[in-house]
Write a protein that binds this DNA or RNA. Structure first.
Lengths: 127, 127, 127, 127
DNA sequence: GTGGTCTAGACCACC
DNA sequence: GTGGTCTAGACCACT
């Protein structure tokens, strides 16, 4: 459900944060549903529990999830414009990327074709 | 000519390397043309000269540029498939981005429109 | 009668212990009087009965109360200097607090005024 | 300059956060002044550097300080109502404390005397 | 078993 | 030398 890119420059704990947010937006994780326990997720991803803990702590600080000591972590309520913020962030990254692509004399059309290809390839992955 | 994103996670010296490569590929910097001196570029970007130095050193190690002690740094000759490698890297990043966008239920078409917009906006910047 | 601060860092079962002790010292709970049954108190405070149980167990270990299987828990006899120990603890906390207040350039007089206000506000609550 | 109460229930990293905030408010740490480096402070307090790091990270997140990789951490600018917030928090703790003190039949006057004593004792410490 | 905190020690990128 | 991230392993409080 949650995938990590170990080669990425983005810290693992931030990747987890992004992942959880997206899963909530996509409706995979519902309101008040329990998140995978820290240790279990650590085992699944073969990552140190502290790293998961850091991600969950930040999610709680943002009001995205809430934690009950000794019980677990759960999807919270304050998710209003989560989706829009995420989208803006990704579109901003896309913008940066396009600057680089332009400099390589790559046409917008070719980029779009590549986008279509990515969508085909990953179809069904996030569902 | 060279732009730095200080908020980016990508190290400054790597941003410089990328920038120089793209400028060479785009033909802005020609063969045997002199690169901006380390100190001057450091002043322009208000960056520590060591950081520029590190970028230039790596570019020389890769054979992209050559340096003449006491004279300056110049665009080298071994640029064969520079372009293709760069393109592959950027397309891979684009791929990662698409995964996130799909999860937000954003259609490939909307992404392509955004790409077109970016191209319009930045037209002429990199030239 | 017993109040819990769920946001407090002090564990719930310790808060209960403190509360019971203070109620005994204040004379609200008399010698050999029955304490609220574990399950009832759990319901009132919407807390896990185990937590109440843990508090009562510790109170019994300290000799403050005694429990009769199948009957209930009762206020015990060994209460000699309970009051003094409690007072010392609270005064120590007060001391810590004053250090922080001093650093904020808040005068002792202003603190005292605040103390008076607290006493006014809570008058009758603990009785 | 920074003091930790190891017996306190309040996590060490939170105590550090409070301490730094108070030092800034009291004017001991000025705008753009460098904070003690993570490792140095860790040595002074004989605390793990990770704990200091956690405190600094949270302070940066709150906009109280800013960090420059490889250079250091510095006092930031967004300190507007820091003082008032801190005061409110401490007064709230004081309020809680008074409730306990009242139950022990300790008069407001006696509490105030104790406050005066604390102020005498710690005079000059925070300066 | 679950989250929260802390220690010890390591590596990386940047200055 | 400095901040940022991560691992490994531990203890505590709560359910």
């Amino acid at each position: 459900m949650i995938t990590i890119d170990y080669k990425s420059r983005k810290p693992i704990y931030e990747q987890i944060i992004e992942n959880v947010k997206q899963l909530i937006i996509a409706g995979v994780l519902q309101r008040d549903e329990q998140l995978p326990p820290v240790r279990q997720l650590a085992l699944e991803l073969t990552i140190n529990p502290n790293t998961i803990q850091k991600a969950y702590a930040e999610l709680e600080r943002q009001g995205i999830i809430y934690s009950l000591k000794g019980k677990g972590s759960y999807v919270g309520s304050s998710l209003h414009e989560l989706s829009q913020v995420q989208k803006d962030q990704l579109f901003q990254e896309l913008d940066q990327l396009c600057i680089g692509l332009m400099r390589l004399q790559i046409s917008a059309d070719e980029v779009c074709q590549q986008v279509q290809k990515s969508y085909q390839k990953d179809k069904g992955v996030g569902q």
